[in-house]
Design a protein around this nucleic acid. Sequence first.
DNA 1: CTGAATCCGACACGATACTG
DNA 2: CAGTATCGTGTCGGATTCAG
Lengths: 223, 223
Amino acid sequence: MAKTKNYRHFCPVARSLEVIGEKWSLLVVRDLLRGPQRFTDLMKYLGGITPKWLTARLRELERAGIVERESVEGRREVRYTLTKKGRDLAPVVEALAVWGIEHAQRPPLPGEAIYPEQTLSAVTMSLNSHRHRLDEPATWLLSFGQSGTHILRYDGEHWSAQPGQAGADVTATITPEDWMRFLGARRLERAALLPTLHLEGEGDRIAEFERTFGIRRAGSSAD
Amino acid sequence: MAKTKNYRHFCPVARSLEVIGEKWSLLVVRDLLRGPQRFTDLMKYLGGITPKWLTARLRELERAGIVERESVEGRREVRYTLTKKGRDLAPVVEALAVWGIEHAQRPPLPGEAIYPEQTLSAVTMSLNSHRHRLDEPATWLLSFGQSGTHILRYDGEHWSAQPGQAGADVTATITPEDWMRFLGARRLERAALLPTLHLEGEGDRIAEFERTFGIRRAGSSAD
DNA sequence: CTGAATCCGACACGATACTG
DNA sequence: CAGTATCGTGTCGGATTCAG
């Protein structure tokens, strides 16, 4: 890494890119931002990386003080965690997610790795970044069948997402594939895909959900 | 580009990196964020890029709708400008600059390309990002000898920088090299480098300047 | 002097297989 | 589960050349 990806600029942007500009590096950080992960978890989320390169990236990130490697006592497991330096990369990942949602979306490709937690994390980043507000706190449950359930929550100020279940104001039941297709669509096409979400809840709470995802209203949407 | 830097994830972060994750791409955007530039301007600021790769990156960024190429009527000059899609990358560059200032700084290497405008742009990003405030608006003049003069301005809310001269509250006269060394130093070492700045102005305005650059006070500094 | 194109070598990376 | 090893390909740097 130090060889070719060396800009020799006295510029913090160039310096940052020298550290985390290699292929896969920022995606490793993206996945570790959701919490500690094991080697095979990362392999799964990064779908397509070879073990050789994941090892290489993790070693580099470790040397750079971004990632910490913790061996679980007695077990063969290794947990990778972000240090503070690593967590401080959150704004970078967030900015990339926001830009990607606004300017680089496309429908999912056939056979593409599909992990709802990644998209939900991106959706919350975008909503927080655009300061999207509701009139009151809300809890939305997204049920992806055997791919698990996730909660998208607005606490009156910030948005957050986590795997799990809870009493929800709105429940969406949808396959991961259809969810991706919905997110990958532009506003006008989303209305047509709305039935695939099978929304349940009170009428005005459903309307909030739809507005948040850009149905029938411009501006302040997760696009 | 489309070959190896293709993640096949349905994730906006991965999508963004597919578009602007190649070497040099974001640095081209960094320099165009300060305004339109010609091919040779970019060559200069990117110190080290080969014309072949600058051409390649500009073509890719053009195809991606991030950069626009404008031929100046009658002349051979070509001006490269950012589109809205390109300007929307500002938060990404900003986040990288902030992280780089906080976690990847180092003193300038000998023979390293030195362009004060790049560092000033990064400094304003960092100050704005940390919401660094002064009690009143301020205009600071940085005179780099034959490398030109630059103005760092606080309008009571935001920080900005531009090349040029103006009546200033504080004037610093310093070589670009010493300025880089100052910025590359950690807080404790900066105090020692302070004399190289040759600050002029009223006592309390100078104190503001010093506080902003982390002298004698922790927190809310450009570090 | 500006805005490129061309050839070549180094190494970053992908695909596949294998191991403690 | 958490990696190594081997081999082929693509990306990039360096030097040179070229047309307005």
